[in-house]
Amino acid sequence: MPEGHSIHRLALQFTAMFVGEELAVSSPQGRFAAGASQLDGHILVSAMASGKQLFLGFDNDLILRVHLGLYGAWTFGGDSTFSGFPSIGAPRRVDDAVGGTDAVQPPYAGPPAPVGAVRTRLVSGRGWADLRGPTACVVITAREEALALARLGPDPLREGSDPAAFVTRLRSSATPIGVQLMNQAVVAGIGNVYRAEVLFLQRINPWRPGKAVLESEALAVWEIAARLMQDGVREGRILTTTPSERNGQAAEAAPHYVYKRTGEPCRRCGTSIASADMAARTVYWCPECQRN
């Protein structure tokens, strides 16, 4: 599932490409036809990410809420002024940016014919965006948006998010920290990759109860998550290892410390990385570096 950094990248791309533009909104697949008709012909005025959800606000006070889930993805294209990424979402891709003044592109003649099950298509005078396979794609009111945001925990990538709220929620429960970090009501935007990597870097065993996590440790978890996720927004991928700990390997070959490295040696101590089922997802950790 795309994690929070991908959704914040989407918000930035929609802001740069579509905010201030009147959009033709349609549902080539047909499943979102009623919702598309409510937004068609209106101006996009805002694009905001919170956790794993994207909120696109229109000038008629309606909001398009999108949760990509496991399979959702946006694809983009446009004229020579478009300098964004052609695909953001699942399945994960690392694409070079396209468009911009340095790119050689054919004259823009509008979006191509829809390919596959396009849930919704947004088209401006200079570009287009197609959404496929989301878990949620709904039109909501401002009040419903406020309720949806209230159900989410603080987002390390949102300016003004309160880390103290995360610390309080985490430490008020005996639920293992590895479970809580995946709970979007505790902290918004962290997924399976960031969970594993953040806990490794803070040397916390994923099975430790939240109540047993010190306040200073919880704050450090927040700060590490914020740093790694900011890197993810900038780089377009989750890269947590440092060059010195990749043993000469390229970043693409050694991007993580523990995630999906079951049985491989820890990059710091050499112990075999462990994994287990935790709340219907696989959690990874180093038994030596993360004893407690």
Rank of each mutant, 00 (worst) to 15 (best):
N60L: 00
E252D: 13
E159W: 09
L10W: 03
E252C: 10
E252Q: 11
L68P: 05
T141Q: 02
E145H: 12
G263E: 01
G72A: 07
P243R: 00
E145C: 12
T120W: 02
L219H: 00
K260P: 05
L39C: 01
K211S: 14
R143Q: 14
P2Y: 07
T262Q: 15
V186N: 02
I238L: 15
V115Y: 11
P106N: 14
K52T: 06
L199F: 01
G4N: 10
D102I: 10
P86M: 11
C289N: 02
G57Y: 06
T75C: 13
C289K: 00
A253C: 10
Q29A: 15
T101C: 14
L157M: 03
P107S: 10
P163N: 03
G51K: 00
D162N: 04
V283C: 07
S26W: 07
D102E: 13
V25L: 05
T271M: 14
G30R: 06
I43D: 01
L147A: 14
T175P: 09
V19T: 11
R126N: 09
R268G: 08
H67E: 12
I238W: 12
S6H: 08
E22L: 12
I273Q: 00
T241G: 07
A33F: 03
D61S: 07
T242F: 12
V233K: 06
S87Y: 12
N192V: 08
R126W: 08
R9G: 10
A142M: 13
C137S: 03
A226Q: 11
A49E: 01
H8P: 01
T75F: 08
G236V: 04
L12K: 14
A253I: 08
R208G: 02
S216V: 09
D102T: 15
A253M: 14
G263S: 00
M278V: 06
G110Y: 07
K52H: 06
N183R: 12
P156D: 06
M278Y: 01
N183H: 12
N192M: 04
T282E: 12
T15M: 13
L214H: 08
S46H: 10
Q29R: 13
M229V: 05
G30Q: 05
G263A: 04
P243E: 02
A113M: 12
A36D: 07
